[in-house]
């Protein structure tokens, strides 16, 4: 398998991380990813990631649930086997609202979680590489991908100059477990 080289720098304070991300992008390095122990609002924007459209997917799953429920119950109770329950009309819509609502929520929630897992490639027993185990504790880890144009020593020095501690070069086998933002409009600004 192909191998890739990364320059990995650690940060201890998100207040240093923010300007660092900006500088890295301005300097034209290829930012592979930033790993953080907790969500940092605005970091995605700073990295130039586009907004997620997960919630749109959720909406679509939701209305699928709504129409499944209304469609199925209507078919079952008015066409397939119409029964008079307590003198109510066959098409007893008010009585179907609860089940319809529940299925809307169920479809939306289950669909979204599965989509989330799929998009992030998360599943039980999956192992992924995130360069520094402290990144789930107290360290913000920034990884730059080395391209042909990258001068490693210079890049390492650059990371140090913008506040990174513990900068090192790591070689990883490429694969889906490294994640990729190929489809995620990343603007690599050059000055």
């Amino acid at each position: 398998m192909a191998k890739k080289k990364f320059i990995v720098g650690s940060f201890t304070d998100e207040a240093v991380l923010f300007p660092a991300v900006k500088k890295v992008r301005r300097a034209g390095y290829k930012l592979h990813d930033v790993f953080t122990p907790f969500p940092i609002h605005g970091l995605d924007k700073e990295m130039g990631l586009r907004d997620t459209s997960l919630h749109t997917a959720g909406f679509i799953y939701g209305i699928t649930g709504t129409s499944t429920a209304v469609g199925f119950i209507t078919w079952a109770l008015t066409i397939d086997w119409a029964i008079n329950f307590g003198g109510k009309p066959y098409f007893a819509l008010p009585a179907w609202i609860p089940v319809t609502f529940e299925l809307t929520v169920l479809f939306a929630a289950v669909g979204m979680v599965l989509t989330f897992c799929w998009l992030c490639q998360l599943a039980p027993f999956v192992k992924k590489d995130h360069f520094n185990p402290r990144s789930t504790d107290d360290t913000f880890v920034m990884a730059l991908e080395c391209t042909n144009a990258t001068n490693e020593a210079e890049a390492q020095q650059f990371l140090q100059s913008i506040g990174a501690t513990d900068v090192k070069v790591e070689v990883k086998e490429t694969g889906w477990w490294l994640g990729s933002y190929a489809n995620d409009k990343m603007r690599f600004e050059k000055n």
């Binding site: 990813d33 930033v34 995605d44 907004d51 992030c120 999956v126 992924k128 990144s135 994640g179």
Partner: peptide
């Protein structure tokens, strides 16, 4: 589940 703390994952998680 192989969680890494990647920024994109956090964004989706949020």
């Amino acid at each position: 589940f192989g969680w890494t703390g990647s920024t994109k994952h956090w964004q989706r998680h949020e």
